[in-house]
Amino acid sequence: MQRPHHEPAFDDEPRRGRVSHEDMLRVALFAGMADAAGTRQAEIRWRGGSVADLRAALEAAYPAIGGLLARSAVAIGNRYAADEAEVPATADVAIIPPVSGG
């Protein structure tokens, strides 16, 4: 279920009317990443794409998380997802930065 690489993660074409609620992908942020982004829930305009596309879109929207994001895992539906995995607009997405429990 991989998307061809030439397809954009999100389009920049003019949209008719307002951006609808369904176009927004909510992404849970934690710890230092939430601090850097200034929110625990990032919102990205999303029309499908891969985890790698999502990383790029997140970094563009929240430049301050870039360094940590590169070292983080991405979870979809509470499972770790590879960069090639598809991210549906309805996905339950969380960014998991390097952990430090104990």
């Binding site: 979870a75 930065p97 952990v99």
Partner: peptide, 21 residues
């Protein structure tokens, strides 16, 4: 100060596995 160990490589070990539901 939030602690995020590393600073070099991504957490490939964690990313390669999958947690159970």
């Amino acid at each position: 100060d939030w602690i995020h160990p590393g600073g070099g490589a991504p957490q490939q070990e964690a990313a390669a596995r999958g947690p159970r539901a």
